[in-house]
Design a protein around this nucleic acid. Sequence first.
DNA 1: TCAGTTTATCGTAATATTACGATGTTAAAA
DNA 2: TTTTAACATCGTAATATTACGATAAACTGA
Lengths: 111, 111
Amino acid sequence: MGVTKTNLFTKEQNELACYAKVLAHPARIAILQYLLKSNRCINGDLVNELGLAQATISQHLRELKNAGIIQGSIEGVSVSYCIDATNWYKIQQLLNVLFDSLKSLEPKDCC
Amino acid sequence: MGVTKTNLFTKEQNELACYAKVLAHPARIAILQYLLKSNRCINGDLVNELGLAQATISQHLRELKNAGIIQGSIEGVSVSYCIDATNWYKIQQLLNVLFDSLKSLEPKDCC
DNA sequence: TCAGTTTATCGTAATATTACGATGTTAAAA
DNA sequence: TTTTAACATCGTAATATTACGATAAACTGA
């Protein structure tokens, strides 16, 4: 097996899991933090900043882009990436809907 | 390779990625949503609710528990699981620190 | 004690992810 | 036109994840 049984779950559950998966790697977190700090960057910036090979950075950038978290535009010989603000807030809200739905319990209420 | 180069990243980046990884599966999202709704559950509840084998549910529960998101206590012949509220809020805050640090830009400011 | 119930763990097959060298592709510069 | 720079993509090795049957462990009730 080893394949997630996507059909067992709701669209919302799969969507949330997909977004979480994109965040589930420290290099991608680092890329996002770099973008948050500097507004935009190119592949080469990140190769210097993170210590991973160019091909690896490119692969991570593609995953972030496929998920809609960042967008890239060709700028001469390089590609300028930045955060897609619209999706950024959408993902934050999706996560907060989940996290906010914990009815407040006394600490150690159940277990 | 195929091994994340953990040492290249900060403790915070690795921690955030770890929490995201636990959320990065629809079955675990479904388990959390079930717990949010019903406050507590046992393995058998989830086997009925989700359509996955008992061993698979048990494996997902272990990952949620190892990450500190849920806790379980033995209750007779079964194990009662519930959300660990303290860590729940901590993770939400960690995520929001990331998401809130997007300086507001005009939509389509960069790319 | 013995049988039944509920979980956890082991072993394993199928698949996904991570990382990087090598190789293409595209646009500016010479 | 040729060269250079910056990326993307391909191919692949190493490892991680997902799922489940089988089995073990622990507690309950007869």
